[in-house]
Design a binder for these strands. Structure first.
Length: 493
RNA sequence: GCGGGUGUAGUUCAGUGGUAGAACACCAGCUUCCCAAGCUGGAUACGCCAGUUCGAUUCUGGUCACCCGCACCA
């Protein structure tokens, strides 16, 4: 049974406890932008860390990377984003609704609409004649009252360079993946990795979406954790299954309830042009119509990206000749011997060169963070009172342990402070001596702190402290000198 | 973007064309040897900008933001 029934409850909880705030709130807010508060920042950091540990640190076949957000514009020409990462839209003059041109239906036969299409190629699409006189507005059913088709660009633009002369239009990356492909050669040359291997990266991406809405599920600025796993063509389907299972289990191992998690395979006509297969890991958020929302997509990107960048590398003359006019640059045709190109891999065992295939698990860190938060939330009756508690997996808990003196006298605060100082270098800890101890326990329950350590009268007699466990509220005694080791073991850190 | 709704303290809600109220939460002190106890005291709010008015949190207009639905998107 969902404890948080509506989006409002979640937003309210996030604000009240300092997990997530509206960005620029003192100025009335900025649409689609959110800030992580003290607890949220810790939680999100732990989500990142858990991803990195599972996908990079614990794997012998994956290395990490941290690319710049701004990259050479040709990266986006080669990847297709400069041409295709846009929608051709038109506005209905009657009701002002904006609709994608390729989604409009004919009045007569209801045909002509392409469903689930990817972003269109703006160059060619804009050049085409678009006769919209027979098209129906999906919002108000008016026929043929459309303005001229316009490109709606999904990449944020910015300018680099102080002088007008040497200014260059750059784009905020719409995905972190391309930075990995652009560094494929560097990683190969510097790390002695061999296919099959992966490169993982966590970082911010930006997409100027037409609409956002729904709290932090679709924001224009968001954080991705992406792995590009390079493998020999022919083994790609195997690795696809491998990462499907690995990523699904990652969520389960971090405490997401199984009934709230599922796969959803993409229909063939829903696939991006480069993808051979794609599946979403979805979480059932407890609001709306019990909406299943994507947390992560796992795609088989084939050898598309590396091959495209090989074409891009050959096209640099055009880049200089057109003074960087991406629209008028045409990527050079692919070399017939492309599989021996600069982004190919020489397989020592098979004694052959090839462009590896890529399996890409791409997770939304913000969505994941919220899913963990929502999934951990619980309310229960304790002596007629409602106890609200966040049952985070210990790895994700923003605070690992809280240290209390039972009362603020008899030397207890001194011992507690000493313990706190001893622990804070190893764990995120919290010290509190205010008010009744029961209140302090409950406060930590709401923050999701798995353990509370209380210094009491007995501490001075036998050097033990009370360890109070969040989920069961049970207490046990541990020698003060063994607390650090005890927590390490319990928290599995 | 469209339609509908909302915006008062940290949260959930009252209320008024003339000094803005509660509950819980928070802070300080007292008390307190184990689960939101008690007592005393305290701080904090009418989203923003205009207009009407002697006076606007209240009326009007605009704007910003959020929620629901549609559309869009993954």
């Amino acid at each position: 049974m969902a404890k948080l029934a509506k989006l409002d409850d979640i937003v309210s909880l996030c604000k009240r406890r300092g997990f997530i705030f509206q960005s620029s709130e003192i100025y009335g807010g900025l649409a689609s932008c959110y800030d992580y508060g003290p607890l949220g920042a810790e939680l999100k950091r732990n989500v990142r860390q858990a991803w990195w540990k599972a996908v990079v640190q614990m794997r012998d076949d994956v290395v990490g990377l941290d690319c710049s957000i701004l990259m050479h514009p040709m990266v986006w020409k080669s990847s297709g984003h400069a041409d295709k990462f846009a929608d051709l839209v038109t506005v209905c003059k009657k009701c002002n609704t904006r609709t994608r041109v390729d989604h409009l239906q004919d009045k007569t036969d209801g045909k002509g609409a392409e469903e689930h299409t990817e972003h269109v190629n703006i160059e060619t699409e804009a050049a085409k004649e678009h006769n919209l006189s027979n098209k129906v507005c999906p919002a108000c059913q008016t026929v043929g009252q459309f303005g001229p088709p316009m490109a709606f660009k999904l990449m944020f633009e910015t300018q680099m360079g102080a002088n007008a002369d040497d200014q260059m239009t750059l784009y905020l990356r719409p995905e972190t993946a391309q930075g990995i492909f652009a560094n494929f050669r560097n990683v190969l040359d510097s790390t002695r990795v061999k296919v099959p291997f992966g490169i993982g990266q966590i970082g911010k991406s930006f997409r100027n979406e037409v609409t956002t809405k729904a709290f932090i599920f679709r924001t224009r600025e968001f954080e991705q954790a992406e792995l590009e796993f390079f493998c020999k063509p022919g083994t790609d389907e195997e690795w696809y299954e491998h990462w499907k299972a690995a990523r699904f289990n990652w969520y389960l191992n971090l405490g997401i309830k199984k009934e709230n998690l599922r796969f959803r395979d993409h229909d063939p006509d829903e696939l991006a042009h480069y993808a051979k297969a794609c599946v979403d890991v979805e979480y059932k958020f407890p609001f709306g119509q019990g909406d299943w929302q994507e947390l992560e997509g796992i795609a088989n990107r084939t050898d598309y990206d590396l091959r495209q960048h090989q074409r891009g590398m050959k096209t640099m003359n055009d880049w200089y000749e057109t003074k960087g006019d991406l629209v008028n640059i045409k990527l050079k045709d692919e070399d017939p011997e492309y599989h021996k190109g600069p982004l190919s891999f020489f397989d020592e065992e098979a004694k052959e060169r090839y462009i590896p295939y890529v399996i890409e698990p791409s997770a939304g860190i913000d969505r994941g963070t919220l899913a963990f938060l929502v999934d951990a939330y619980d309310e229960e009756e304790v002596k007629g009172e409602t106890r609200s508690v966040l049952r985070f997996h210990p790895h994700l808990a923003p605070i690992k342990a809280a240290i209390f003196p039972l009362v603020k006298k008899d030397g207890m605060p001194e011992i507690a402070t000493k313990l706190y100082n001893d622990l804070k270098g190893c764990f995120t800890t919290f010290y509190d001596e205010k008010g009744a101890v029961g209140r302090r326990y409950r406060r930590q329950d709401e923050a999701g702190t798995p353990y509370c350590l209380t210094i009491d009268g007995q501490t001075k007699e036998d050097n033990t402290v009370t360890v109070r466990e969040r989920d069961s509220m049970e207490q046990s005694r541990v020698n003060i000198d063994q607390v650090k080791a005890y927590l390490r073991e319990k928290l599995d850190l």
